[in-house]
């Protein structure tokens, strides 16, 4: 089962190494990792997705809590949170295929952000599943390259994540 951990940390040098190293040491493989400043410049948020393996994820969250620079950890419940990923995809588009691609883009409420003679760059956001479905539909046209940011997630309702 996949877990999405939202981890608030002090925005200091070396904190990412401490967090990432701890996952490796305790035998957890990080699927995706997003790090950026929060509303406070002194605090960063790491959104980490991990696959639960032999040991429960609780083992690693308890160890994470022991890191002095870690402030708060939330193991987000998928149904109680909104999650998004950002995708940039560069897809081959000639005169023939262009309109078909644009139709798919419209259906998915994605956005064309760069156009050239042979390719389009499309930006889209959505859940991991939606992003994957979108990618699948564009694949037959010929994908030059694609980039996904990894998941960010926020808990629903009044309470902060």
């Amino acid at each position: 089962m996949k877990h999405t951990l939202s981890v608030l940390v002090e925005n200091k040098p070396g904190v990412l190494t401490r967090v990432a190293g701890l996952f490796a040491r305790r035998g957890f493989n990080i699927d995706s990792l997003v790090v950026a400043e929060t509303e406070s410049a002194a605090v960063s948020r790491m959104t980490i997705t991990v696959e639960e393996q032999d040991q429960p994820v609780e083992q690693v969250t308890k160890q994470l809590h022991k890191l002095i620079n870690v402030l708060k950890i939330t193991d987000l419940d998928p149904s109680g949170s909104v999650e998004r990923e950002l995708l940039l995809i560069k897809v081959k588009a000639d005169a023939e295929s262009r309109s078909a691609i644009m139709q798919i883009v419209e259906i998915f409420r994605a956005k064309i952000v760069d156009v050239s003679a042979e390719v389009l760059i499309v930006e889209m956001t959505g859940t991991r599943e939606k992003v994957s479905a979108f990618m699948e539909l564009l694949t037959p046209f010929g994908v030059v390259e694609l980039m996904r940011t990894g998941r960010i997630a926020m808990s629903r309702g009044k309470r902060a994540t």
């Binding site: 070396g14 190494t17 040491r25 022991k66």
Partner: peptide, 14 residues
């Protein structure tokens, strides 16, 4: 040194 000792300290400072 902070890197080398990372997994074996309670905390470290540079």
């Amino acid at each position: 040194v902070t890197g080398i000792t990372l997994p074996i300290v309670k905390h470290s400072y540079l």
